[in-house]
């Protein structure tokens, strides 16, 4: 019962704040703050699904780091609502909306009806320990590649960002 109440409350908050991200065209700062709320409510949903680790990551990485980066960019560049091209291409907007609505009408029932029995998971499922174990055994190679990818990203950022390379 409590779980259901928490689920509906956080799902509702997630939807409302997600709408806030899109609708706040005048003030991009509010839009970014709405995104933080969306991320936090999603984290609650993840924890309800027994995926504590992803829930914590959601708060740390998305709400904590990425959106803060967005806020920095918005404040440093001093972007105002009008700069974001809110009034551009109305025809495309209508077509896009229609396509999305059409796809949702078609897909949402399909996605929910194809929900089938998933394999039973143990009590350890989704814990840091279990994820760490999987990461360092089955997914060891993928984990290492992610490390090289980060290095390449850093080198790339230095090349792009340094004032003078010699």
């Amino acid at each position: 019962m409590t779980e259901q109440v928490i689920f509906y409350v956080s799902a509702f908050v997630a939807l409302i704040s997600a709408a806030g991200v899109v609708l706040n065209v005048r003030n991009t700062l509010y839009a970014a703050l709405c995104l933080v709320i969306t991320m936090l409510s999603l984290a609650v949903l993840f924890i309800l699904l027994n995926a504590e680790f992803i829930g914590v990551l959601q708060v740390m990485v998305y709400a904590g780091a990425i959106v803060v980066l967005f806020l920095f960019v918005i404040m440093l560049l001093n972007i105002r609502g009008g700069d974001m091209g809110a009034d551009r291409q109305p025809v495309l907007k209508v077509i896009g909306t229609l396509l999305i609505v059409g796809a949702s009408v078609k897909l949402v029932p399909l996605l929910s009806e194809s929900r089938r029995a998933w394999p039973e998971v143990g009590p350890e499922f989704g814990t840091v320990r279990a994820i760490g174990g999987t990461l360092y055994t089955d997914y060891l190679l993928a984990f290492e590649i992610a490390g090289v990818l980060l290095l390449a990203g850093i080198v790339g950022a230095v090349v792009m960002g340094k004032q003078r390379i010699d």
Binding site: Y139, A142, I145, V148, L149, A152, V155, G156, V159, M160
Partner: peptide, 23 residues
């Protein structure tokens, strides 16, 4: 699929930088 995606990104991200190498 996981390796496919990681490898694709590892291939692409340095290329984005290389394309802009003449700063």
């Amino acid at each position: 699929l996981m390796m496919l995606f990681l490898a694709l990104e590892l291939m692409s991200i340095p290329l984005y930088v290389l394309a802009g190498f003449r700063r």
